[in-house]
């Protein structure tokens, strides 16, 4: 069994924190993982992505082959579309529906949303609005992880929720509680979708 995930977003949005939580859960579950990250120049507000590969056996390549990704998990809708050539025909796109418009030629809202809605397996969650509504502005990425949780077949929702607690443990009980709540909010939002 394997799960190849492309995490995408804009530099500074926190895709690496999502990768860290999934990675920790995978390690706890005894899975193998490889995670290619982007450091350096592109982190300054440019498009960023990380290839996260999980399997119950050895993994050769650090990068995912075109047409084989089981999931694109994106903190930004246009960035989700950028990696579609990597998506398996049965793969899922789980994405934030709040665009991050730091470029003058950002596509029209109806264009990117039509492109996403045309996909066979897609979940769009307005994680930024949910984060604002629940007064947890820094938790948009954990809300998105919650939304993706039940589509990550290689890990259970509970394993991921446990990892959220362990990753934030050093920051105190209140932070753990808020992030777990963010995770649950995302999880429930994806059920409605």
């Amino acid at each position: 069994m394997k799960q190849d995930i492309i995490l995408s977003g804009v530099g500074g949005q926190g895709i690496l924190s999502i990768a860290t939580i999934i990675g920790e859960a995978a390690t706890q579950a005894g899975l193998t993982l490889k995670q290619a990250e982007v450091h350096g120049m592109s982190q300054r507000g440019g498009d960023v992505q990380s290839n996260l590969r999980l399997a119950d056996g050895p993994i050769a390549s650090d990068l995912i082959t075109a047409g084989t990704a089981d999931m694109i998990l994106s903190l930004e809708p246009m960035e989700a579309l950028r990696y579609l050539p990597y998506l398996d025909k049965e793969g899922w796109v789980i994405t934030s529906s709040s665009p991050f418009k730091n470029i003058p030629n950002y596509p029209a809202d109806e264009d990117w949303s039509a492109a996403l809605k045309a996909l066979p397996h897609v979940v769009m969650v307005d994680v930024e609005a949910l984060a604002r509504e629940h007064a947890m502005p820094k938790c948009a990425n954990v809300i998105l992880l919650g939304a993706a949780a039940r589509f990550l077949n290689i890990l259970t929702v509970e394993q991921l929720r446990g990892s959220v607690a362990r990753i934030f443990a050093a920051k105190g009980e209140a932070v753990v509680e808020m992030n777990q709540r963010a995770f649950d909010i995302g999880h429930d939002a994806a059920l409605v979708e």
């Binding site: 507000g45 440019g46 075109a66 047409g67 246009m78 579309l81 730091n102 030629n105 596509p107």
Partner: peptide
């Protein structure tokens, strides 16, 4: 050669890095 099932929509534009 790997098989691609989806193409990148033409609406997707590049997002270069910028000074903070």
């Amino acid at each position: 050669q790997p098989v691609r099932f989806f193409e990148m929509p033409k609406e997707v534009v590049s997002r270069p890095p910028a000074l903070c």
